[in-house]
Design a protein around this nucleic acid. Sequence first.
DNA 1: TCAGTTCTGGATCAATCGGTGCAAAATGGA
DNA 2: TCCATTTTGCACCGATTGATCCAGAACTGA
Lengths: 198, 198
Amino acid sequence: MGRPRAFDEERVLDAAMRAFWAGGYEGTSTRDLCEATGLDRSSVYNAFTSKHELFKRALARYLDAMTATQAEILGDVGRPAGERVRALLARIIDDEFRCRGDGPSIGCLSVNTTVELAGHDEEISRLLDRDLRRRLDALQAVIEEGLRAGDIVSGRDPATLARYLNAVIAGIRVSAKGGAGRADLEAIAATALDTLIR
Amino acid sequence: MGRPRAFDEERVLDAAMRAFWAGGYEGTSTRDLCEATGLDRSSVYNAFTSKHELFKRALARYLDAMTATQAEILGDVGRPAGERVRALLARIIDDEFRCRGDGPSIGCLSVNTTVELAGHDEEISRLLDRDLRRRLDALQAVIEEGLRAGDIVSGRDPATLARYLNAVIAGIRVSAKGGAGRADLEAIAATALDTLIR
DNA sequence: TCAGTTCTGGATCAATCGGTGCAAAATGGA
DNA sequence: TCCATTTTGCACCGATTGATCCAGAACTGA
């Protein structure tokens, strides 16, 4: 009952996500969001309550999609654990170049949001925290598997190695935003794995 | 001649720097800057032309100070090169906790600005680029020294190792913003050095 | 002491911000 | 067909944005 929506909510969320991704939270106005989604402001507010709420939805969608993709790569039981970690880094580098124009990468919405809002916005911080835990857990599981199988070798404990890899991933993404080329990023990733895989 | 300024320009720049550091460029209004510096708006505009120009000055000041401090640590000829790299990472972790309140670290203005403005703002990008080159050069010089002396060991070339360390530093800073504790950051740094120092 | 110059404080500017009010439009159920 | 309900487009809200204007204060050199 009632007038049906003229838009697909998931498409709108995707468009909003891309807008926030490119412009940041503060840097993206509600007018920008309307242009990106094709909706009018009243429709946006009717469907998503507020800019902040829309951002939460868009960020959660991004985190879910991103972490699911990464978990899929890390959970590929057909390959050795070390190779899965290597494939994850390769995928991340691909992503940095997939939707890049002529300028530097737009980076990763998770890193962008951590830098912009962690510590200022409690709700957003919670979303990021929860996602970070999931990613660390997935990394740690693969590392434990690799240590047992012997294709990952390190004197460090799995939780530390997971934290380390997560930091390297963030570092790769910041480097990409800073203008590093594909070869640079691949060299960083390869060097990072020298400690784990031999 | 003319009425003398009632403020010290360097102090004002420091205050503005801290405000931008904590709030980001978009997130810090000219009113915020006035509150942080104690100046009136007309004084700010009279002395620094515009918000953007003030940000450039504050960022340049930050980059100069930060990179000079790091170059000093890396140039300490009394210690082995590997130890200098280790000291640099220790110093960076200290910084993340030095001016942290109860919440997560405010991070690094260079990383914050790279994430927020690189690709959107050409002038700022140039400042960041120039600083990145200086930092990479300083890192590469120490690494070459360490490789010659033998206390740094790696099959990778010095430029790659410098890029790698720079990415690790960015990763540590993002991790700090994401709420990682001191022990976490130290473990990340120690793991990162496993590839270089043995 | 006064002219010339610079700086300061407060009012003010147009533009934009996030958000709302309202009437017309579009549906399903009665 | 008409009512209840929801969405849509457009005008509009007060607040805030970056920036400017201007009168007066504070200094130097003549």
